[in-house]
Simulated assay, not measured.
Amino acid sequence: MIYIGVTGWGDHCSIYPDGIPASDKLKEYSGHFPTVEVDASFYAVQPEKNMKKWVKDTPHNFQFIVKAYQGMTGHQRGEIPFESKEEMFEAFKKSLTSFQEAEKLAMVLFQFPPWFDCTKENVDYLRWCKEQMNGTPCALEFRNRSWFEGTYYEKTLTFMKEENWIHSICDEPQAGEGSIPEVLIPTDSNKTLVRMHGRNIHGWKKPVKGKEWREVRYLYKYNKQELMEWQEKLKTLEKSCKDIYLVFNNNSGGDAAENAKMLLDLMDISYEGLAPHQLDLFS
């Protein structure tokens, strides 16, 4: 099955009625798409009450892709707010309980930063992360090209298969060391993740410093031809993997939800069991 959605549910104005409260957006979102990437978990380990609400707000077959906390992937500057890395991982795993009990956890996404290159130390850390996650389905996304250069290409894929990492395949600008090539090879026969970052090469090469960098990097709208290319790629991936999760991350200009809808139309995909659009009944 192909699950198509977007990253986050707060900013996709094109699918929401005017004036919708932020607390109701996930309910409305789940009437359009069967999966979403939780990015709030990257910035802070989420309290149990948040996870319980998100489970309650979505249909029984809805699937969450939860982004690993930034301290787990080396993004956080300074000290982490935990006594140890072990404590940090335990807190994060505990936060997943509601998703797991409801069978709504598709996977946890470990997205590593551009400075996380292919070294023995980093390979050892990946093994340690997988051990800490104790069987939880985990996807792995690199942001450093060294993992797929030369002889490391095959070694990286073999490592991911042996360690049971789900491959996070990226569509992104080819902008040198800080980007990775499109590698259309599943490393898990059950699940593959595809993340559509857009193709704004200028935004990747010269990002604005500060919090505005995301607005520059992910400002991109896929055209029909580009999505048709992915239509064929997804069909190919399906031949060797049971479930494909694809999320659009190009939302700086509000294009992610629209592109997700376009791809659904191109592939003639419709989902059963989505939430009813309750908020539209009196509009």
Rank of each mutant, 00 (worst) to 15 (best):
F42E: 00
F64M: 01
V66L: 10
P47W: 01
H60V: 11
I65W: 10
F62A: 02
D39H: 15
F42L: 04
F62D: 03
K52H: 10
K53N: 14
I65R: 05
V45D: 01
K53T: 12
F64H: 13
M51W: 02
P47E: 02
K27V: 13
K52V: 14
S30H: 07
D57S: 15
M51C: 02
T58V: 11
T58Q: 03
H60T: 15
Q63D: 06
V55A: 05
K56H: 14
A44P: 06
K53D: 13
V36N: 01
F64V: 05
Q63L: 06
A44I: 00
N50L: 10
V38A: 08
Y43E: 10
Y43P: 05
W54P: 01
K52Y: 09
V45P: 00
A68E: 03
K27T: 14
A68P: 04
F62H: 03
K49V: 14
F64D: 03
W54Q: 09
Q46Y: 14
N50Q: 05
M51N: 12
P34T: 08
K67Q: 10
T58A: 02
N50I: 06
H60W: 07
P47G: 11
K52C: 12
Q46W: 04
P59W: 09
A44N: 09
V66P: 02
F62Y: 15
N61R: 08
T35N: 10
Q63F: 04
K52I: 04
K56M: 01
E48L: 01
D39E: 13
V45N: 10
E48I: 02
A44L: 05
Q63R: 15
E28H: 15
A68T: 13
F33Y: 15
F33H: 08
P59Q: 08
S41R: 11
D39T: 12
A68Y: 07
K49P: 02
T58F: 05
E37T: 06
T35Q: 08
H32G: 00
F64W: 06
S30R: 11
H60L: 13
P47T: 15
D39M: 04
